[in-house]
């Protein structure tokens, strides 16, 4: 047999962010899972090695410990600043996350609008700059604006996390052209964040050249989160492979795949 089903180099080429090597190019958000048991099963099915957590007031009545579940799963934590609306709040939340989880990594979110949950660009850039100065590894949730992405890179962000569509909307990649421009505008890793609805969205993001995909609601709110986690894992791998393979150009007219040479005259 000439072909093999064993993983090739392209299947497994790792993602490196700020010197940390990740074999999986799928980041998992922990929000929205109906139980910690389902979360644990979905993490296993996704193959993800980096998962997000939020920081909230201690609930003395809470049952089960998220932190224990994630430790058992053997994943690295990526704390976020979800819910912050100002650079000040995001910076303080990042400092608290560093204290709580003993990691310098922060998924920086600074929200500017309650209905769309779109990022507040000036506050985001300000917070990113301050956190980089304080030694954080900053991964900002941003719009699909290539110029803003470059500004975030220039202040020292370790990656950029552009949206495909609003958080939790499941609308997919609404502006793939902008994402392709953004991909070319920066040299840091691009992690498509927000808007993923199903596996084909994740594959498309990878085909466009994104280095990784982050999915939360698309998995946690699927009817079968574990099955969707597995689907996303395969989609991200397939998209990565297809990107590396180089797709054929789009043409308006047909190009015969079978040669006319030697065609019988009947």
């Amino acid at each position: 047999m000439a072909s093999s089903t064993a993983p090739t180099k392209a299947d497994t080429d790792p993602l490196v962010i700020a010197g940390r090597t990740l074999r999986s190019r799928l980041l998992l958000g922990t929000g929205g899972f109906p139980s910690l048991e389902l979360l644990a099963a979905a993490i296993r099915a996704s193959g993800s090695e980096l998962v997000t957590v939020a920081l909230r007031r201690v609930d003395v009545a809470a049952r089960g410990s998220l932190i224990d579940v994630l430790a058992d799963a053997g994943v690295e934590l990526l704390p976020n600043t979800a819910g912050c609306h100002t650079a000040r709040d995001a910076v303080l939340t990042a400092r608290l996350a560093r204290e709580a989880f003993a990691t310098d990594w922060i998924k920086l979110e600074v929200i500017g609008d309650e209905d769309t949950l779109l990022p507040d660009a000036p506050e985001l850039l300000r917070a990113a700059e301050e956190l980089v100065d304080e030694g954080f590894v900053v991964l900002p949730y941003t719009t699909d604006d290539p110029v803003l992405a470059r500004r975030l890179q220039d202040v020292g962000c370790a990656a950029v996390m552009p949206l495909g569509a609003p958080i939790g909307s499941g609308m997919g990649l609404r502006n793939p052209y902008n994402l392709a421009l953004l991909r070319d505008a920066v040299h840091v890793p691009v992690v498509l964040d927000a808007g993923i609805g199903t596996a084909s969205d994740a594959a498309l993001a990878m085909e466009l050249g994104c280095d990784a995909v982050m999915a939360a609601s698309a998995i946690s709110r699927a009817q079968d989160p574990v099955r969707m986690a597995r689907a996303m894992r395969h989609a991200v791998q397939a998209g990565r492979l297809a990107h590396g393979a180089g797709r054929i150009p789009r043409r308006l007219y047909a190009t015969a795949s079978t040669s006319a040479e030697g065609l019988a005259e009947l």
Binding site: G31, G32, T52, V53, L55, I67, A82, E109, A216
Partner: peptide, 10 residues
């Protein structure tokens, strides 16, 4: 005083 911990999110 704010006492915070990990919650599902993101």
């Amino acid at each position: 005083v704010e006492v915070l911990t990990a919650m599902q999110g993101g």
